[in-house]
């Protein structure tokens, strides 16, 4: 498949996985709960990266996709007593249909226009869940008392990490194939993609569906971790920015970058919480993201790569 895998790729992934599996031994339950959020944010950031980081179709409406996954499984399990083993796959399938709907405007519009339309998707869904059948959606107050899949921080951590690492690894591998190159090419020059004999429509549809798959998966497991849905927090522009900033400071179009960006950002927000309990801390992380961006536009990922290469060079030099 020409993935260009080297021994150190295996070493780094295995090292990272072992480190993360030992995490419950090393940190407090409180910290573990923070990392659970980081795992879910990582899933959402990876989903965003597959679509927007790669193809350049910037989504400001990712909670639309996450929300479809979350609400579908919540409604199915709570209102219709469907088991999670059916509800979650159905939720993911519904999200992929949502991804296809979000893809339709991308047939005709791009750039900031597409970003605005995607934002409208989120707003529309926010309005709809409040107005249409609040007996099902819980209206403005959302839903609580949903099935939870795990008990306690440690189990919640292992489940969220398992999902996150499977998503991260599989998407990282997928994007190392020629498909990843083709999706990046769309961001660079869609006309030249056509001129190379490739159908951008097919590629974009694949990106939207894959992004939606991951968003739906994350959204569904997230509600079954929380046991509740709060529409105001879900369909919130701050949530959108958290996803985007995590991706950008991590390094867009790299999969691994958004994963680390999600951890970095979650801990940053967590440590700022005592000092800045309100929404001001979003301002602070905006500033930090901007500074990092000015220092290294390709994000933390590139900083790590550069360090690693320097390390390797030292090794080679003896």
């Amino acid at each position: 498949m020409g993935l260009g895998l080297k021994w150190y790729h295996f070493a780094l992934w295995i090292g990272f996985i072992i480190f993360m599996l030992l995490m419950p031994e090393m940190v407090s339950k409180g910290t573990l709960r923070t990392i659970i959020f980081a795992n879910f944010l990582a899933i959402f950031a990876i989903s965003w990266d597959i679509l927007s980081g790669r193809t350049g179709y910037i989504s400001f409406g990712h909670p639309f996709l996450i929300g479809i996954g979350a609400y579908t499984t919540a409604i199915l399990t709570k209102r219709f007593d469907v088991g999670v083993e059916y509800a979650i796959p159905l939720a993911i399938a519904m999200t992929m249909i949502g991804g296809t709907i979000m893809f339709l405007p991308a047939l005709r519009i791009k750039g900031s226009y597409f970003a605005l339309v995607s934002l409208a998707f989120m707003e529309l869904m926010y309005q709809l869940v409040q107005v249409i059948r609040p007996d099902l959606t819980g209206g403005t107050r959302g839903m609580s008392g949903l099935v939870t899949l795990t008990r306690g921080a440690v189990n919640g951590y292992y489940l969220s990490f398992t999902i996150m690492i499977i998503v991260a690894l599989s998407m990282w591998l997928l994007m190392r194939t020629r498909l990843g190159t083709a999706l990046s090419a769309i961001a660079l020059n869609e006309e030249s993609v056509k001129g190379s004999g490739l159908s951008p429509t097919k590629l974009k549809l694949f990106a939207f569906m894959t992004s939606a798959f991951v968003a739906g998966l994350g959204g569904a497991f997230y509600v079954h971790y929380l046991g509740s849905i709060a529409p105001r927090a879900l369909f919130d522009i701050n949530f959108v920015f958290t996803i985007i900033v995590a991706t950008l400071i991590g390094g867009a179009s790299t999969i691994v970058g958004p994963m680390f960006g999600a951890f970095f950002l979650t801990f940053l927000l967590e440590y700022l919480r005592p000092y800045l309990p309100g929404a001001e801390r979003y301002l602070i992380y905006g500033v930090i993201a901007l500074l990092l961006y000015m220092y290294q536009p390709k994000g933390l990922y590139q900083i790590m790569i550069n360090q690693f290469n320097r390390f390797k060079k030292d090794e080679d030099d003896g």
Partner: peptide, 21 residues
């Protein structure tokens, strides 16, 4: 090389994934 790679790709997502450059 990457520029040329895009031109060489078949218009099939499956083949893009399963066959290397």
């Amino acid at each position: 090389l990457e520029n040329i790679r895009v031109g060489l790709m078949p218009d099939s997502i499956w083949k893009m994934i399963t066959q290397g450059p």
